[in-house]
Simulated scan of single mutants.
Amino acid sequence: MAGATTMQGGCACGKVRFEADVDNDEAYLCHCRMCQRATGSISIAFKNMPQAKVRWMSGPDWYKSSPIAQRPYCRECGTSLGFQFKEGSQNLDLTVAAFDDPSRFKPKHHFGAESIHRAWLNTDGLPEQRTEDYQKLVDKWVDATGSFPG
């Protein structure tokens, strides 16, 4: 496993955790209607991994999303964690955002191009606002927890 880096990740609430031996920074965006519906998003960023290089430290629940596939997720918080064919594949996809530090990954291609919402691909030039600059949100966090996460 020369060159592999062990990376960790999991769901929003922390119930589901995994480790993955990652040997490159390649990821992809899936735009297929099944992924759009399963995630509630216009696309999902995936890291394709050999199943043998992924260890579930505290396992996910699995949703049978179609006759040919299933998806790991957290039953407590609803986080979508990936995609896996039920049969015939040694790989699975982990959602890039589920990694504790997803900054390593770079998109290398699009999949499900027939369902791409092109208006959402290049958003350069749209106004940007940092989370910590939205005072109403900061105040809600401080009121609820005593501090702003970050």
Results as ranks from 00 to 15, higher is better:
Met1Gly: 15
Ala4Met: 11
Thr5Ile: 15
Gln8Asp: 08
Gly10Asp: 10
Cys11Thr: 10
Cys11His: 06
Arg17Thr: 09
Ala20His: 02
Asp21Pro: 02
Asp21Ser: 14
Asp21Glu: 15
Glu26Asn: 11
Ala27Cys: 02
Ala27Met: 04
Ala27Trp: 03
Tyr28Thr: 00
Leu29Val: 08
Cys30Ala: 12
Cys32Met: 04
Cys32Ala: 00
Cys32Arg: 05
Arg33Ile: 00
Cys35Lys: 03
Cys35Ser: 05
Arg37Gly: 04
Arg37Ile: 02
Arg37Val: 04
Ala38Arg: 10
Gly40Asn: 08
Gly40Phe: 04
Gly40Ile: 05
Ser41Ala: 10
Ser41Trp: 00
Ser41Asn: 07
Ile42Leu: 08
Ile42Gly: 04
Ala45Tyr: 01
Phe46Glu: 05
Lys47Phe: 09
Asn48Glu: 05
Asn48Ile: 13
Pro50Cys: 04
Ala52Val: 11
Ala52Pro: 11
Lys53Ile: 11
Lys53Phe: 10
Val54Asp: 08
Arg55Gly: 11
Arg55Asp: 12
Trp56Cys: 13
Met57Asp: 12
Met57Asn: 13
Met57Leu: 13
Ser58Val: 07
Ser58Asp: 12
Lys64Asp: 12
Lys64Arg: 02
Lys64Leu: 10
Ser66Ile: 05
Ser66Arg: 07
Pro67Arg: 05
Pro67Gln: 12
Ile68Phe: 15
Ile68Tyr: 15
Ala69Asp: 01
Gln70Ala: 14
Arg71Tyr: 12
Tyr73Thr: 02
Tyr73Ala: 07
Cys74Gln: 02
Arg75Thr: 05
Cys77Met: 07
Cys77Gly: 00
Cys77Leu: 05
Cys77Ser: 09
Thr79Arg: 01
Thr79Ser: 13
Ser80Trp: 02
Gly82Asn: 08
Phe83Lys: 07
Gln84Ile: 09
Gln84Cys: 15
Phe85Gly: 01
Phe85Met: 10
Ser89Trp: 15
Gln90Cys: 09
Gln90Asp: 14
Asn91Arg: 00
Leu92Ile: 08
Leu92Asn: 04
Leu94Gly: 12
Leu94Thr: 09
Ala98Arg: 07
Ala98His: 06
Phe99Thr: 04
Lys106Ile: 14
Pro107Ile: 10
Pro107Thr: 09
His109Glu: 03
His109Thr: 06
His110Ala: 09
Gly112Lys: 02
Gly112Val: 03
Gly112Phe: 01
Ala113Phe: 11
Glu114Phe: 03
Ile116Cys: 06
Ala119Asp: 06
Trp120Asp: 09
Asn122Pro: 04
Thr123Ser: 00
Asp124Glu: 10
Asp124Ile: 03
Asp124Leu: 03
Asp124Trp: 02
Leu126Thr: 00
Leu126His: 02
Leu126Asp: 00
Pro127Leu: 00
Pro127Lys: 00
Glu128Arg: 15
Glu128Asp: 07
Gln129Phe: 15
Arg130Asn: 08
Arg130Leu: 11
Glu132Ala: 09
Glu132Val: 01
Asp133Cys: 01
Tyr134Leu: 15
Tyr134Cys: 06
Gln135Asn: 07
Gln135Trp: 04
Lys136Trp: 12
Asp139Arg: 15
Lys140Phe: 02
Lys140Thr: 04
Asp143Trp: 06
Gly146Phe: 04
Ser147Ile: 05
Phe148Cys: 08
Pro149Val: 08
Gly150His: 13
Gly150Ile: 11
